[in-house]
Design a binder for these strands. Sequence first.
DNA 1: AGGCACACTAAGCGGCCGCTCACCTTCGGC
DNA 2: GCCGAAGGTGAGCGGCCGCTTAGTGTGCCT
Lengths: 208, 208
Amino acid sequence: MSAAEETAGGEIEPWDEVTPDAARRLLVAAVEAFAERGYHATTTRDIAGRAGMSPAALYIHYKTKEELLHRISRIGHDRALDILRTAAAGEGDATRRLADAVSSFVRWHAGRRTTARVVQYELDALGPEARAEILDLRRQVDAEVRGIIEEGAATGEFDVPDVHGTTLAVLSLCIDVARWFNVDGPRTPEEVGALYADLVLRMVGAAK
Amino acid sequence: MSAAEETAGGEIEPWDEVTPDAARRLLVAAVEAFAERGYHATTTRDIAGRAGMSPAALYIHYKTKEELLHRISRIGHDRALDILRTAAAGEGDATRRLADAVSSFVRWHAGRRTTARVVQYELDALGPEARAEILDLRRQVDAEVRGIIEEGAATGEFDVPDVHGTTLAVLSLCIDVARWFNVDGPRTPEEVGALYADLVLRMVGAAK
DNA sequence: AGGCACACTAAGCGGCCGCTCACCTTCGGC
DNA sequence: GCCGAAGGTGAGCGGCCGCTTAGTGTGCCT
């Protein structure tokens, strides 16, 4: 298994852009620890221990604990943005592309809940510069979804009185999946994605 | 102002069930600190300092820092449940009562964002017994919303293929308001409440 | 074989953490 | 006027925190 890691939650995490191997192991360990206990409650000794290394080893690959969070957050936001861009640039009308965007975005938040939780809920733990960088990515995420909704409203496919507010609500709905989704629960990521795509189409007044 | 406190965020917080006065001041300080920085990143010295007291004063009124969080979480959940029960037991058909429930629940999460943030996002910091107690309250919250949706589906007012999933989504949408709502932003809690009530009625397929 | 860059560890430093304790004030009841 | 209860403080304890440093093992280049 060279390009993927099986984590405790049973998710497949492709962190292959992180090298060398020890740096990736530390980063995967940090994702799990941050997701379980939160950034501030996680100690560098815990991260190193999960990666099977001594506490000092962390500082060979990362300057600080915050840099670890920054790298995780950056990679996660890049991935989330990539998912939305792929759906937004796909084939079909606005209805089809909005449904694709929501279902794939939700599948990521549910299937990779561990990563998504860190990415979406630990933003405040970053310093000012890192936070500003991530907030810029979030604005791009917002713009992708808003673009599809605006287009559907323009063509008459959708009935949306408040484009900005509806965009906010759609993203909020998807992101919050990372908070409540339970891997051992009754629903698969695919089922939640399909349900949410249907609910969002209702929200924008798309014809069934 | 004996029954309400004006906090830094400009919100009115009625913590009058907490006595004596010093205990209430400490609790309000803890709510602000937990909301801003998170439970684990908040120190007891910070809480006491905000309340204008020495660090040791906290332990006259609360056994531990966790007891403070427990009290906040309990009071907040009681209030949230009260809001939903009032709306669910109100007059009108299911459409009217669901709109009331969503708009008042959202107004609380937006207008009392500081409290709601702590209540909704710091659950994991509680110990097993306290968490179990809070989870029981959350099940009651879920039951109230599900009850309205089930009734609307039974009378034919709503078109809801998946009652449990839709309930989950409606609550998720409302709760996440506490994460993104900005007091200095362009929308008032009332506006968000009205927007969300409309979006939720669309989600359940209620006639306009 | 020698040298040296690299990855890693054991030990520990300074500092802040949650929390405690000995002591001090204020105040109502008799 | 005395007392005990209640509410407060300053100092500090034991411990864990993020992070550093000195030293060790390993493998590649010459």
